[in-house]
């Protein structure tokens, strides 16, 4: 319970800064609207206002700062507006039994979550297999590792459309598979690096001990290397699941997808509805938080059952 206060303090600071930022971000829009409503603002025309800083506009039109907190299409919505929009598209729709409507963020989150899950599964499997190959064979250490590093220097936004095009050339229907591949592409790397470190974590004398028993390679793996790598694995899985989610959203962005959180963000951008963008962003953040927390829970349970203090 002692940690509640610092957590709430940080949250309060973030929300406070957010509220403060709304005023300068929205003052221009607020003044434009007031001008169209027949009010007199200084300077009077949008053209004249263009070269005046937001700070000066706020000082010269103090009465209109308030209006920036209640706009329909704000540059930066207030936390309250985002919260209301989020509730409108999730809880409120669920209460009316419309959780799976195309306008519900629950539906879009579910679409994103599915791809994230498959991408995470694929990426984790590839990461672990790659790590085993790298640890057990010097050839793959030399040949695989550089490619793994290079793969992460290519911007995923550039790669995502190509993956979509290539998979449709291969006759793969729908967005699910290419999205999962993009997601896996981002997710396998932390798992690979973490598992290489984990599988190599046993000390010299721990390996020597098994040699004195004439243990086979498979026994060394199952009795020493694999269990020793567990703490490393979970740390990388937590990074990996967040990366998988980012990968899925990126996979939904430039590809003309119509469902998923990434598609919501893109559509919100195209139709000029910042509230939709922000609520989709917050939904993605909440989703990532839930996934990481879930993995943290699995980690605690697993390590405790293994007798290690987590």
């Amino acid at each position: 319970m002692r940690s509640v206060l610092p957590v709430l303090s940080v949250l309060a600071v973030i929300v406070g800064l957010w509220y403060l930022a709304v005023a300068p971000m929205n003052i221009r829009v607020a003044l434009d609207q007031a001008e169209r409503g027949g009010e007199v603002v200084t300077p009077e025309t949008p053209l004249a206002r263009q070269n005046v800083s937001v700070w000066a506009l706020m000082i010269r039109n103090p009465d209109h700062v308030r209006a920036g907190y209640a706009l329909d299409r704000p540059r930066l919505p207030t936390p309250q507006q985002v919260g209301r929009e989020l509730w409108k598209t999730t809880g409120a729709m669920a209460l009316r039994g419309r959780a799976w409507s195309k306008r519900s963020l629950i539906y879009h989150s579910w679409i994103t979550l599915q791809s994230t899950f498959w991408g995470f599964l694929l990426g984790t499997t590839l990461g672990i297999l790659g790590a085993v190959a790298i640890v057990y064979s010097r050839v793959s250490d030399l040949s695989l590792m550089p490619w793994a590093i290079i793969s992460q220097t290519v911007p995923i936004v550039a790669l995502a459309p190509m993956i979509i095009v290539l998979s449709s050339q291969l006759g793969i229907e729908g967005r699910g598979v290419p999205k999962a591949i993009i997601s896996a592409y981002l997710c396998y790397f932390p798992v690979l690096v973490g598992m290489v470190k984990g599988l190599r974590s046993p000390r010299r004398d721990q390996l020597d001990l098994l040699r004195t028993y004439s243990a086979s390679g498979a026994q060394t793996f199952s009795k020493l290397r694999l269990p020793a790598s567990m703490p490393y694995l979970f740390t990388s899985l937590k990074i990996g699941v967040a990366a998988a989610l980012v990968g899925t959203i990126v996979g939904e962005l430039p590809t003309g997808a119509i469902s998923g959180l990434g598609a919501r963000i893109l559509i919100g951008d195209q139709f000029g509805t910042p509230l939709a963008i922000w609520s989709a962003l917050i939904a993605a953040a909440i989703l990532a938080g839930v996934l990481v927390t879930l993995l943290d829970l699995v980690q605690r349970i697993t390590l405790r059952r293994m007798g290690m203090q987590a």
Binding site: D205, T212, P227, M230, G307
Partner: peptide, 18 residues
């Protein structure tokens, strides 16, 4: 070694924590 002629005790106890 294959005939299990010896047991080896290292400087660190090297017990597996799990």
């Amino acid at each position: 070694r294959r005939k299990r002629a010896y047991g080896y005790v290292f400087q660190a106890a090297g017990l597996y924590p799990w």
